[in-house]
Design a protein around this nucleic acid. Structure first.
Lengths: 339, 339
DNA sequence: TTGTAGGCGTTATCAT
DNA sequence: ATGATAACGCCTACAA
C-alpha cells in the first residue's frame, strides 16, 4: 500500500497530459475533448485518485462542510432532529460536522476553533447558542440558517415549526371535544418553542368571540423531560383539581405524566383526562403511551433548513428567507376526538 | 465587516514581525521570546485571527476531523451512542464528521468522497460498512477504530462491548432465580453483537456441569426494533408456551414485547414471565417498561474508542489494540432477583 | 531568536 | 482544447 495519496499531478503524468487538464476534467462546464477526459478518468481510477479537499478549500474558501450546531444531544427529540439534518446534508453532497455546545462555558472556545474550518454553512438548531454564534459566522460571510429560534437575527435564514399553530390546534381539539377545564404545561426554562406553543394554546382559548365556558390554566414543570412529567403528574394528582384536558408543550413531559397517572391508578386516560403532546417523538406511538400529539416533522424541517442553506450558497445576496413548517394533529389513544 | 478573514501575514504585519514568527508563536514547543509572542497574540486578537485549517491540513496531511461512520441513525441506541462519540471527540479537540451509510448502494460513493477529506481518523460503529471502508482508510494511512464489530480486520483497533458476558449474565440471573424454561430472542438479521449475546446466553446454560433442569430455546423476530417485539409478543401469546424468562438481545425488542404482553392482559410481568433486555436504552428506565437489562455503557465505549484513536495518532505503529467493555446488570421491575 | 524561501495540491488566468 | 503559471495560507528547513 502506498500510503501517499495520488495527486492530480500523478494522474496527469500517467495520462500524459498536464496537471491543469486533469483538474479541468472534473469540471463539467469545462470544454474538454471526450478522449482526453476519458484518458484522465482512466488514469485517475487506476491510481485511486481523489481530490484533496484541503487544497480545494484553500481556493474556493469553502470546505463543503456544514456545521450543525446543537445544544445538548441529551434531549432525544433534538437528536432525532439532528439525524434528519445529517441525512439532508449528506443528500446535497455536503458533509455534516456536529458541534455540541452543551457546555456554555466552552461556547466561546468552540466557536473560535470552528471558525478555523472554512465551513460552507452553519445550521443552528434550537438552544442557547444564538446571536453570538450566528453573528460571528455571518460576519465572515458564512451563511447561517436558524431553526426554531426567535427571529432577532437580521441576516440569517430562519426555519420555524409553526409553534403557535401547534398550540392553537391542540386548543381547538379540546374545544371541539367539549372540554371544560384545560391546562397547558411547559418547562420553567422557557425555550422559544415552548413559549410560542403555550401562547398559541392560550390565545386560541381566550379569543373574545369564543364560547367562554372553558377554563384555561398554565402550569410549569422544572425541565422539558420525562422525569419532570412524572413529578408534575404526582403533584397534580396529590393536589387535586385534575383538568379534563392537558396540552403538554413537549412529548417527553407528556410521557412522564402518563406514566405517573397510570401508576397512581386514580385517573384514566383519556376518559378522565385527555392528553395532547407536541413534537411526535419516536416513542409517542408506542402502545405504552399512544400519545395524541401535534407533529413537528423533523424530516421536513431538516430538508427545509438544508434547502435554505443551499439556496443561499447559490445566491449569497438574496434577501433572508423566513419559513414556517406546518403543524398537524396525530390522533392516538391519549385523546380521541368525538365525531 | 470585512468578509475576508485575517491571515497570519496580516497578523505579522500588524505585529511587525515575519509571517513565520506568527506561525511559530502558536507552536508551544517553539522557542520564542515572550515579548514577541505577546505582540503576536495581541495583533491576532485585534484581527480576530484564526488559523486556516485547510492550509494547515495541506501540510500536516491531517484535518483533525474524525469520521464517525454509522449505518442507520434510525436505530435510537445507535444514535445515543453516536452522541457519546461526538462528545468524546470534541473533548479531544477533534471534530466529529458524521457519515451515515444507511443506503448501502451509496456506500461506495460516500466512501470515495470521504477519502477527499484528510480525516485524522475514522471510527466505525456497528453496522454493515466494515471491511471495505476500514481497509480503504487503513491503506491510506488513516487510523481506524472498529466498535462492536467482529475482529476480522488486522490493523484496526477494536473496542467491543463484552456481548458474550452480557448474555452470560442474563443466563446466570435466570438460573439463580430458579427459572425452568427460558428463551433468548434476537433479530433474524444477525448482527455481530446480537449473535454474541445469544451465544453467551446459550453457552452459559448449556455448560455440562450446569444443573440441566433448565430448558433453553432460541427464537427470532424480524428486526431489532420495537415493532418486531410487538409482533413477536403477539405470536408467542397466540401460540402458547410462554417461558418463565426471556432474554432479549436488544432492549427495543423487549419494550415491544412488554407492550404486547400488557395489552393482551393474559400474562403478568415479571410474575408469569420475567424479562431481561440488553443495552440499557434511555426508555428502559421509563415506568412503562422498567426494564431489567444488561447495560452497555455508551459513554464508556465512546471514550474508549476515542482514546484508542488518540493513542494511535500518537503512536501510529503501535500494535493494534483490542479492548472489551464490561457488562453490568441493571435491575428494574421486569426481572427481580430473589434474595 | 528571528527572517527568507520553498512547497503542500488545487483552481483560475493567461497564453498558445 | 490544452499547457504554463500564479495564487490560496500555512509550516518548516535553512540561513542569519
Amino acid at each position: 500500500m502506498n500510503k501517499a495519496n495520488a495527486t492530480s499531478a500523478d494522474v496527469a503524468q500517467l495520462a500524459g497530459v498536464s496537471q491543469s487538464t486533469v483538474s479541468r476534467s472534473y469540471d463539467p462546464n469545462s470544454r474538454i475533448s471526450k478522449s482526453t477526459r476519458q484518458k484522465v478518468f482512466a488514469a485517475a481510477e487506476k491510481l485511486h485518485y481523489q481530490v484533496n479537499k484541503a487544497a480545494q478549500t484553500m481556493i474556493n474558501k469553502r470546505s463543503d462542510l456544514v456545521g450543525l450546531v446543537t445544544a445538548g444531544l441529551g434531549d432525544p427529540f433534538r437528536s432525532e432532529f439532528l439525524n434528519s439534518l445529517v441525512l439532508a446534508v449528506q443528500e446535497k453532497g455536503l458533509r455534516p460536522m456536529i458541534i455540541d455546545v452543551t457546555d456554555e462555558q466552552m461556547l466561546d472556545q468552540q466557536l473560535q476553533t470552528l471558525l478555523q474550518y472554512q465551513l460552507s454553512g452553519v445550521i443552528i438548531t434550537s438552544g442557547t447558542p444564538s446571536e453570538a454564534v450566528a453573528n460571528a459566522f455571518i460576519a465572515r460571510g458564512t451563511p447561517v440558517v436558524l431553526v426554531n429560534r426567535a427571529d432577532h437575527s437580521s441576516e440569517a435564514d430562519i426555519i420555524n415549526f409553526d409553534n403557535e399553530a401547534a398550540g392553537r390546534l391542540a386548543a381547538q381539539e379540546f374545544v371541539a371535544a367539549g372540554k371544560h377545564k384545560v391546562m397547558v404545561v411547559r418547562s420553567k426554562v422557557s425555550s422559544y418553542s415552548s413559549v410560542m406553543r403555550s401562547n398559541g394554546f392560550k390565545g386560541a382559548l381566550l379569543e373574545p368571540m369564543r364560547d367562554s365556558s372553558i377554563q384555561v390554566e398554565e402550569r410549569f414543570c422544572e425541565l422539558g423531560d420525562y422525569d419532570s412529567g412524572i413529578i408534575f403528574g404526582k403533584e397534580l394528582i396529590a393536589s387535586g383539581g385534575m383538568p379534563d384536558g392537558i396540552f403538554f408543550c413537549m412529548d417527553y413531559i407528556a410521557c412522564g405524566f402518563i406514566d405517573a397517572i397510570k401508576h397512581s391508578g386514580v385517573y384514566s386516560i383519556p376518559r378522565d383526562v385527555a392528553i395532547i403532546g407536541c413534537d411526535d417523538i419516536t416513542i409517542a406511538r408506542y402502545q405504552a403511551y399512544a400519545l395524541t400529539t401535534i407533529r413537528q416533522s423533523a424530516k421536513e424541517m431538516a430538508s427545509s433548513a438544508v434547502s435554505a442553506l443551499q439556496a443561499r450558497l447559490d445566491h449569497p445576496s438574496a434577501p433572508p428567507i423566513q419559513q414556517k413548517i406546518g403543524a398537524a394533529v396525530i390522533f392516538r389513544h391519549s385523546f380521541v376526538p368525538n365525531h
